[in-house]
């Protein structure tokens, strides 16, 4: 786990009592605030939940920080391989990751390595893959 300074935002993100905190400028200081969902929704510079998830992953080591902390509007984000399958086949629990791979290969005429790479790129918060 490490503090993370984003020069574009001119903010430093850090971990305090298992919460992602932020402060303006480079380097973690004593006076910092929690990155709450409300705070995120007021930000113009952090464009997506995926971006704040990536920041929280760098700082906390968890790829599901926003999910674990109950943020809303995350139903389109996959945090595990099972989420990837469920998002693609929400009403069929017999499907596997191979069906997702085929779902990318067939309509796009991509080979398997290309399809797997695109699935991982598209669901970059997932860290444990079986493919």
């Amino acid at each position: 786990m490490a503090d993370y300074y984003n020069k574009g935002l001119d903010m430093t993100f850090s971990l305090y009592e298992n919460k992602i905190m932020y402060n303006e400028g480079s380097g973690s200081v004593t006076a910092k605030r929690e990155c709450t969902e409300y705070w995120f929704n007021q930000q113009n510079e952090i464009g997506s939940l995926e971006e704040i998830s990536q920041i929280s992953y760098i700082v906390s080591g968890s790829n599901s920080y926003i999910k674990d902390n109950g943020w809303s509007n995350i139903s389109h984000i996959a945090f595990t391989e099972s989420d990837v399958i469920n998002l693609w086949f929400p009403s069929d629990n017999t499907k596997t990751i191979s069906d997702v791979v085929n779902g990318v290969m067939t309509p796009n005429s991509f080979d398997e390595p290309t399809a797997i790479g695109l699935i991982k790129d598209t669901n970059h918060l997932v860290t444990d893959w079986s493919i």
């Binding site: 998002l87 796009n108 695109l118 790129d121």
Partner: peptide, 19 residues
């Protein structure tokens, strides 16, 4: 990386995606 410079447009779960 396989994606030093990369442009992808593809169908994913019924929707077009751009990378």
């Amino acid at each position: 990386t396989t994606g030093m410079a990369r442009v992808v447009v593809f169908t994913y779960s019924g929707h077009t995606r751009w990378i």
